[in-house]
């Protein structure tokens, strides 16, 4: 992988130059609540919250929108496909490794076996620029093996004090650097040493640990663990965890009609498996009527079925769900308890 260096004095100029490519999305601090961040359009490079850790909603909102029109219809004229932002070129700047892994998982879901044209069009117009971070007590990406990434980005910046080491991941990323070659410098031996020091410091900063070895097997054994019922009693099924999850991709499709009752719009909107209507089918049958079943399903989908289907779990350890749950449910705590319960059973039998 080609690596270059961007001195901090040149960062703002580089950010401005990215606007030539398209809309630049950056992490910003919320004015009304210091310490809370969201991805938003950059109007000035000074708005970048360099020290941010996690935004309320992950960058998935630019690729699979909370609510979008997918086509318009009219009983006489047929339908007309709509892809919102189809031509909008975007730079998603400042994504941490967990969020890049989140997008890699969405790529698998939306572009592999069945191609979602809405996601794919926007994805193809998106540049991803990563940014290094220092974890807090809710980060467990290291446990999920998503704390580093060798791909899934066009450029990735690692903070080495006076500048950033810039890993170039794609030819488009290479072009973006070449375009402003005047802002970049050669990587020197001292820079490499600083990077290794940074890595060491970062690796030692993780406070939260989740053992995911053979977790799918343990979950298979613990299908009837009392933990799921306990969780069902605590969970409000408000869906906050799904909305903020970088890999929750479920959506509902429904029609909005005009008053002429012959034309309207088909809508695609974020949905969550925790909602009661999620598994409701024609005739009134509900495959997951019970709250505990719905909560359990969320865990099994991420840590069991995704591993079966795609070879890895669809949790990237970003800690957003821990942060967002009003009831204080903590995914690491839950899965640790499930494992402990499983071990205890084995010992007692």
């Amino acid at each position: 992988m080609k690596v270059s260096k961007l001195p901090k004095a040149n960062v703002n100029k580089f950010l401005e130059s990215l606007q030539d490519f398209g809309e630049v999305i950056i992490p910003k601090e919320k004015q009304e609540q210091p310490g809370v961040y969201m991805f938003d359009t950059m109007t000035d490079p000074s708005e970048v919250a360099w020290e941010y850790l996690r935004t309320i909603i992950p960058p998935k909102k630019y690729l699979t929108k909370p609510k979008e029109v997918i086509f318009k219809f009219d009983s006489q004229r047929g339908f007309e496909e709509v892809i919102e932002d189809a031509e909008q070129k975007r730079v998603l700047f400042g994504l941490h490794p967990c969020d890049i892994h989140g997008i890699k998982i969405l790529d698998v879901v939306f572009t592999h076996q069945y191609t979602d044209p809405y996601y794919t069009r926007r994805r193809n117009n998106t540049v991803i620029i990563g940014l290094s971070c220092i974890p807090d007590e809710k980060c467990f990406c290291k446990s999920m093996h998503t704390d580093y990434t060798e791909d899934g980005f066009d450029l990735a910046l690692s903070d080495i004090g006076d500048g950033y080491l810039v890993a170039i991941g794609t030819s488009l990323g290479d072009d973006l650097v070449a375009e402003r070659a005047d802002l970049f410098t050669e990587v020197e031996e001292t820079d490499r040493r600083k990077y290794l020091d940074f890595r060491k410091k970062r690796n030692q900063s993780f406070k939260l640990d989740l053992d995911i070895d053979d977790l799918p097997y343990i979950l298979d054994l613990e299908q009837h663990s009392p933990i799921w019922d306990e969780l069902g009693k605590r969970c409000l099924t408000c869906g906050s965890c799904s909305m903020v999850c970088p890999t929750c991709y479920c959506f509902n499709v429904y029609d909005e009609l005009n008053l002429d009752a012959r034309s309207g719009r088909r809508i695609k909107q974020w949905d969550a498996c925790l909602f009661k209507d999620y598994a409701l089918v024609a005739g009134g049958h509900n495959f997951r009527e019970d709250r505990a079943e719905r909560v359990k399903n969320r865990y099994y989908h991420k840590q069991f079925r995704m591993v079966e289907q795609y070879g890895k779990p669809s949790c990237v350890g970003c800690g957003r769900c821990i942060n967002a749950c009003p009831a204080g449910i903590d995914v690491v705590e839950v899965l640790t308890k499930v494992r402990e319960g499983s071990y205890a059973e084995t010992e007692s039998s």
Partner: peptide, 16 residues
């Protein structure tokens, strides 16, 4: 809609 305000609130990225 048969879900709670929380999901719309999250979509708006409000501070909880």
């Amino acid at each position: 809609l048969n879900f709670s305000v929380c999901s719309e609130c999250k979509m708006k990225e409000n501070v909880c």
